[in-house]
């Protein structure tokens, strides 16, 4: 095989810069989608906990849509679909400022919110009903019992699943390449096309993904251990 590995070719000048930009975009996608997703997940969980059929059904529909349609298609819907709904002026402006990343953040955040709210919900459901009863028997109000007894247990119980979602989200940011967001895998593909350095380009991108994923995995297992709720 006449192929000589030469990582120096890719790890310098313009290519290095592209990789670093890619990493930065990946992290922006990851962090912002995570924060928005988590906040929205909490809102969805609360709304679904309120005994009002129409809003409960709405949240359920939201969750099922995001769980049963591929993330890539969810990105397409925002990217291609929103453009026709918005007036041209807005679209031109959005394209000037690089709207792809905005669409990607919205789509990824909504998707994660759906999954995370389900994790919270199953966390809540695995708390024994007697915990609520005991909290109320002390004289706490319903909201007080939620605040001081149920939720502190629910988030601990949901934590491992939420951390799992975090890793999936990090890897999922690569799908934004599908709508042209110049994140890490997009840059790797671009560098490969420009330089024909297939193994170097994908090798470096893969290594970076693994490094960050391992960090997330390590942190996840540390946090899960630290906050594990031990119930007899």
């Amino acid at each position: 095989m006449g192929y000589q590995l030469d990582f120096g070719k890719v790890l310098q000048g313009e290519y290095l810069e592209l990789i670093l930009q890619g990493v930065q975009t990946t992290m922006v996608l990851f962090v912002l989608s995570w924060i928005f997703g988590l906040v929205l997940a909490i809102v969805l969980t609360v709304v679904r906990a309120i005994e009002f059929r129409p809003t409960q059904l709405l949240v359920a529909a939201f969750v099922e849509y995001h769980r049963n349609v591929p993330v890539l298609i969810q990105l397409f819907v925002w990217y291609f679909g929103l453009a026709v709904v918005l007036p041209d002026v807005v679209n031109d402006y959005l394209n000037d400022i690089g709207a792809e990343i905005g669409y990607a953040i919205v789509a990824l955040a909504l998707n994660k919110a759906a999954y995370m709210s389900e994790d919270f919900r199953s966390g809540m459901r695995s708390i024994h009903p007697a915990q609520m009863e005991a909290a109320r028997s002390i004289g706490l109000t319903y909201l007080g019992a939620m605040r001081w007894v149920i939720l502190p247990q629910a988030w601990r119980l949901a934590l491992p699943a939420l951390l799992g979602q975090t890793l999936i989200l990090f890897k999922g940011t690569s799908l934004a390449a599908g709508i042209g967001v110049a994140e890490l895998s997009y840059q790797a593909r671009y560098i490969e096309e420009q330089s024909f350095r297939i193994f170097e380009a994908y090798g470096i991108a893969t290594a970076i993904y693994m490094l960050i994923s391992f960090a997330i995995m390590w942190l996840s297992s540390a946090l899960s251990k630290r906050f594990r709720l031990r119930v007899k």
């Binding site: 024994h128 007697a130 009863e133 005991a134 028997s137 004289g139 247990q153 031990r230 007899k232």
Partner: peptide, 15 residues
Amino acid sequence: RTGIGFVFQQFNLFP
């Protein structure tokens, strides 16, 4: 309820 203490069979301590 604050004026009445209640003790359950299963203790129901907050874990």
